[in-house]
Design a protein around this nucleic acid. Sequence first.
DNA 1: AATGTTATTGCATCATTAGGCAATAATCAC
DNA 2: GTGATTATTGCCTAATGATGCAATAACATT
Lengths: 150, 150
Amino acid sequence: MKKHAELITYLKSKGLRMTPSKEILIQFFLDNKSRHVPIKELYDYLSKHIEDVDRTTIYRNIEKFISLGLIQELDLPKVGKVYQYVFGKKMHHYYICKSCGKMNKGNAELFEKVEKALKDIHDFSKANLSMLFYGFCSKCDISAESEILP
Amino acid sequence: MKKHAELITYLKSKGLRMTPSKEILIQFFLDNKSRHVPIKELYDYLSKHIEDVDRTTIYRNIEKFISLGLIQELDLPKVGKVYQYVFGKKMHHYYICKSCGKMNKGNAELFEKVEKALKDIHDFSKANLSMLFYGFCSKCDISAESEILP
DNA sequence: AATGTTATTGCATCATTAGGCAATAATCAC
DNA sequence: GTGATTATTGCCTAATGATGCAATAACATT
């Protein structure tokens, strides 16, 4: 409730107008904070509450939410795009396999080391920062049988 | 030339078969190593060399090349997807603005600090690792006028 | 409460990306 | 070289995502 109101205030301050579709999507994200949601699910959910919503509405709102730091998009190989609530989170990071799309949350130690290292970086907001590490999980490791890659 | 042959050998060892379209795409990437290329350009280039190439061919080859660590995809807000040659590179990283899509190469100091920190991480290949930092550039900074975000 | 401004939506349309299937062609084993 | 295996392509179709425009609705101001 409180979070919801805060969020609305923030979004309005950024020039957004609160419409039924935005209200519903925001509530959905607040209720599913820890999940990674595919856009199909968002559309289905919205359709349940508003009949004949156009798919464009979803795409345009998603885009705005991303630009304002409300949600984050992850494009996972073999899986597709998923969206995740990130508003107010300082940072988060993931390891994503370029081959199979498998995703791991990074460990805390690295998190803190990088956070310290980031103090040097300017022209980039430290709030709401996402770090994505694209590599290869052990199952897909490409360097294993290769004499070319180090 | 040498690089080209090495690459072919590697790809074959991974089960790929060398076809005209793959040859042309690979040569293109070798000739444009430092660039970030949109898929339209790849398609136009391929079309010049093979008449009536199907779009599907590009997409499927791109996907394979990514899976094998030959190229890397960057999905930039407001800009779109671009592809970059990364084969054999140990690591690279970028700062990408979630709002305007502006992209900066990260600085070297952070690069090394993170590289050290990564020694702890297991189940992830250190070769061919991409680090993407998604935040907000100073121009788009969302936290500037907000009392909610830290 | 009425009004003016403008973000938002729906609609139509187009561009991009993905998947199934049969024909083709690259590679391997002999 | 010949044949067998199977990755790849093209084609067709479907799903996903983007864009321009006019109508609508949210919001600030009065």
